[in-house]
């Protein structure tokens, strides 16, 4: 970077060698004055900012733990390509960094909800109702974790609910209360002592379901998550 001279009025034009750096030549053809210090500072600023930007954007992408090729259905997100050779670089980085062993396509499919059906972030101090239908699957389980995907201590010590122990309506639909204190009917317990900042994820794992073995994911029926009450 070089400074600019003000294009002031030429007093007189001289061609002596003593004042060769005349200021009234157009900037582009003015002889170059090297300013090593300024150039160095300028380049360091570029490199510094670029590193900051590049590393922080990579960090944000990895920490969000939401790969690019997610399939979103209502509040649920699935990454059917996770852990395969076709996975995008972000999910490869996320899964290897977390040492996560994904559910393979022949086993099942994990769907993660970080929001309720209205689009609000899930809050472990609230009461939610999960209702509706699930896609055809031989077995499915619902698990609650904190915002980082770790299991939490609940009042009854149970952290999941599976399709085999579920109370259903006549038509096969179901309602599940998701709350930290006991509820009648199907109860999925939340963390006994949770702060809103701990975050909440609800993981629905479908085992041996046609959707994991090729059938298209779009158009499948998934349960809704409704917020009932918040403190």
């Amino acid at each position: 970077m070089t400074g600019s001279g003000s294009p002031g009025q030429p007093a007189e034009i001289r061609y002596g060698e003593a004042d060769w750096h005349v200021q009234d030549l157009p900037l582009a053809i003015r002889p170059h004055k090297t300013r090593p210090f300024r150039t160095l500072v300028f380049l360091s600023i570029i490199v510094g900012f670029a590193s900051l930007l590049g590393i922080s954007s990579a960090y944000v992408m990895i920490e969000r733990e939401q790969p690019l090729n997610a399939v979103t259905i209502g509040p649920w997100q699935a990454y059917p390509k996770a852990g395969t050779a076709e996975a995008d670089p972000y999910s490869v980085a996320i899964y290897t960094r977390g040492a996560v062993v994904p559910l393979a396509s022949g086993e099942g499919l994990a769907l993660v909800a970080r929001q309720d059906s209205a689009g609000h972030l899930l809050d472990p101090t609230c009461v939610y109702r999960i209702s509706g239908q699930t896609p055809a699957a031989r077995l499915w389980t619902l698990t609650v974790t904190d915002g980082d995907g770790h299991l939490v201590q609940t009042l009854p010590g149970r952290v999941y609910l599976d399709s085999q122990s579920l109370l259903r309506n006549q038509d096969g639909s179901f309602e599940i209360s998701v709350a930290n204190n006991p509820h009648s009917g199907n109860w999925l317990p939340l963390a006994a002592a949770a702060n809103a900042s701990d975050g909440l994820r609800i993981v629905l794992r479908l085992y041996d379901a046609p959707v994991t073995t090729g059938a298209a994911l779009d158009g499948i029926q998934l349960p809704t998550i409704e917020r009932q009450a918040c403190p």
Partner: peptide, 14 residues
């Protein structure tokens, strides 16, 4: 340069 560093970081993690 930021794009290059971003890509290097993401590919370097695994």
């Amino acid at each position: 340069l930021a794009v290059i560093i971003h890509v290097l970081v993401v590919f370097g993690i695994p």
